[in-house]
Design a protein around this nucleic acid. Structure first.
Length: 258
DNA sequence: ATGCCGTGGAAACCACGA
């Protein structure tokens, strides 16, 4: 079973690219971020015509997350990250699908740092830490995936020294991410490719993609019950080179039978 | 060193992204 995550940067503007990638890659489960569409403007029919059921949590202009599934029953568990009733950003959706609990997240960027946006990012990460621990305690096979907006190590950024003061790489950000990982999660791409340069995002300007000046910020966190079933993991790097591409590329894992 | 590009929405610019 192939599970993918893709920050589309506008699901309607990206629809031709998204459909082309779905047809080519044929993932069974897909987590999308940055829909940038209100709930009623999600392209449900086009997604359905491509063979996928979908649940989504939209928002006007910004954020927005969705889970797609091909030929699999999907049961939504929640569409809000618990812990702050005041938080109105659409950044989390969770479902049981294919026997797996899939948490699809769009973690706040946090720039400029320091400042209120960075405070919001760190608070969001604290809430994620609490919820991630509860998911592990549930004993279910869990995959937490999406755009984490976290550069975990110096290996995960082109010229990491330029990112030390950035919200994606500041020590507090990496410590908060590390605290989640210590609960018992495994970074699937890094486990299977321990020393490779792997990027999932390339800026639109300065030919960042052509120079492979990227970041690895979209991740797959596997619970121990899923880890033993991990077969392969990678980035559909070439999709970033397509006309009208997102600034992120799709990332995927292959999970064997449980 | 830097939103230099891209998207969406409101209003022919601005917010936001990483």
């Amino acid at each position: 079973m192939k599970i993918a995550t893709y920050n589309v940067n506008g699901v309607n503007g990206r629809l031709p690219v998204l459909l082309r990638w779905l047809a080519e890659s044929a993932p069974d489960i897909v987590c999308l971020q940055e829909l940038k569409a209100p709930q009623e403007n999600f392209p449900e029919q086009a997604i359905r015509d491509a063979g996928y059921n979908a649940i989504w949590h939209g928002q006007k202009s910004w954020n927005g997350v969705a889970i797609l599934a091909k030929g699999l029953e999907m049961t939504e568990m929640r569409r809000v990250l618990p812990g702050d009733p005041e938080d109105i950003h659409s950044r989390y959706i969770e479902a049981m699908v294919g026997g797996l609990l899939i948490g699809c997240l769009y973690l706040p960027n946090g720039n400029p740092a320091p400042g209120p946006k960075y405070d919001y990012k760190l608070r969001w990460m604290e809430r994620l830490t609490v919820h991630a621990a509860e998911l592990l305690a549930s004993g279910k096979p869990v995959i937490l995936t999406g755009d984490f907006n976290v550069i975990p190590t110096t290996l995960d950024a082109y010229k990491a020294e330029r990112w030390v003061d950035d919200a994606l790489f500041r020590p507090e950000t990496r410590e908060a991410f590390g605290k989640i990982m210590e609960q018992g999660w495994t970074d699937a791409l890094r486990l299977l490719h321990p020393n490779e340069t792997i990027y999932t995002f390339w800026d639109y300007f300065r030919d960042a993609y052509g120079r492979n000046a990227g970041l690895r910020i979209d991740h797959f966190l596997l619970s121990p019950m899923v880890l033993g079933r991990l077969v392969a993991a990678g980035v559909d790097h070439h999709v970033r080179g397509w006309e009208k591409s997102s600034d992120h590329g799709p990332v995927w894992v292959e999970i064997g039978e449980g």
